[in-house]
Design a binder for these strands. Structure first.
Length: 396
DNA sequence: AATGCGGGGCG
DNA sequence: CGCCCAGCATT
């Protein structure tokens, strides 16, 4: 309905944390009363499972159904990341690290190299840490959500997903897709980023879970969310739940779920050097925590936005950086372009300067630096932003 | 409760 | 090309 849509938009634009329910009698606080009766739950379950039997996506990890490790790796990669993006990473990863033991024996660099470009690099660190914990203790991956949850990197969703899919444990696994499906199916108008709304959906999901094949049920909902009940312009006409979907009946599926606006992004300028001597480039390793943890990049310095406005103000930052590497002031850096790179919370601009050395001033400054031949750049684990920077330098 | 953490897809 | 999407850990 037009009015409902307008209300939603107004709420979002204002960045309100809690979009008030338009139906006072439909308050979320009494969560339990809103769980549908058993016969409705049965019908919905049957629809979902029947649909899944015909329409399940053929995904690499689904070919290893009983393999907890395989599901674990997949679920970690799938956090905040789409299936299509994950598949090639997953296949390479499982090729190199087919078991917990093999993963535990990997080096940090080896692991990061398999993860480079996938983002959220702490996921890789936590996965590695958890694998080492299991290997050291000589225990198998837990089969229940409570114990899975104790491993680093495994939260409520991932614990439920692994336990249900790999071990047939009747646990809900409420991710973004399933949240969207339930918000529409049961017409939940509360802000889904709020704890009370999330709790309500979690309770619904727990009530909906079938005891026999919970893994199929969870995966079916994920598939429906990914292929039919998509965020914008949901394909309600082909949805197996259309007859049961309160939002479809109400005509506002596209307006749900409601969520608070995210913080706006801030702009961050970075002066990046590509320091070249013959065919070698100088790179350094980022710290093991924070953004792009443990990845390699060319030496750079972040500058404040106010500095960026003053064009002349850039040069001192660059000079200071080059002085740290004992690079002669006779060397004139050449600006070769600007790379924009957007993150959730920050808009980066990398101003890239080529610095051509005719003699190597000194050896690598410390263990976190190295000179690397251009043809071996691909052996380094680098972020997508760094890949763009190197591409600019090499001319693709 | 709020924030940090990447990257890709879509209209 | 502007807008949207999505779990866990830390603080």
């Amino acid at each position: 309905m037009v009015d409902a849509g307008a209300m939603v938009k107004a709420g979002l634009m204002a960045g309100r944390k809690n979009a008030a329910s338009p139906h006072p009698d439909g308050d979320l606080s009494s969560g339990e009363s809103r769980i549908p009766p058993p016969n409705v739950r049965r019908n919905i379950r049957r629809r979902i499972l029947t649909w899944y039997a015909k329409n399940a996506r053929d995904l690499p990890w689904r070919r290893r159904a009983g393999d907890g490790y395989a599901q674990w790796v997949a679920e970690i990669m799938l956090q905040q990341t789409q299936v299509k993006t994950v598949i090639p990473y997953y296949n390479r990863f499982m090729q190199s690290f087919p078991t917990v033991k093999r993963l535990a024996a990997a080096t940090d660099d080896e692991l990061l190299h398999h993860w480079q470009g996938l983002g959220y690099y702490r996921r890789a660190a936590n996965l590695h840490k958890a694998a080492k914990q299991l290997a050291d203790a000589k225990i198998d991956l837990p089969r229940d959500p409570v114990n899975l949850r104790k491993l680093p990197g495994i939260g409520q969703y991932t614990a439920g997903a692994i336990a249900s899919i790999a071990f047939n444990h009747p646990a809900p696994a409420v991710d973004g897709n399933i949240t969207r499906v339930y918000a529409r199916l049961f017409h939940i108008t509360g802000d889904v980023t709020r704890p009370d709304t999330r709790r309500h959906i979690q309770n619904l999901a727990a009530a909906m879970i079938p005891t026999k094949i919970p893994g199929h049920y969870n995966q079916a909902l994920m598939d429906i969310g990914a292929t039919i009940c998509v965020p914008a312009n949901p394909l309600c006409t082909v949805c197996p739940l259309s007859n049961y979907c309160q939002a479809n009946i109400h005509g506002d599926a596209g307006e749900l779920p409601i969520k608070a606006t995210r913080k706006s992004v801030t702009t961050q300028h970075v002066i990046t050097t590509v320091i070249q001597h013959q065919n070698h480039l100088l790179v350094r390793k980022r710290p093991s925590t924070g953004l792009w943890a443990g990845l390699w990049e060319p030496p750079n310095v972040e500058i404040s936005v106010t500095d960026a406005k003053d064009d002349a103000g850039k040069v001192p930052h660059l000079d200071t950086l080059l002085r740290e590497y004992n690079i002669s002031s006779n060397i004139i850096p050449q600006h070769i372009g600007r790379i924009p790179h957007l993150l959730t919370h920050r808009q980066y601009h990398f101003d890239v300067y080529k610095v051509q050395l005719f003699c190597r001033v000194r050896n690598t400054p410390d263990n976190n630096h190295q000179w690397i031949a251009q043809e071996y750049i691909h052996t380094l684990a680098i972020s997508t932003a760094t890949r763009k920077i190197f591409s600019l330098f090499t001319g693709e």
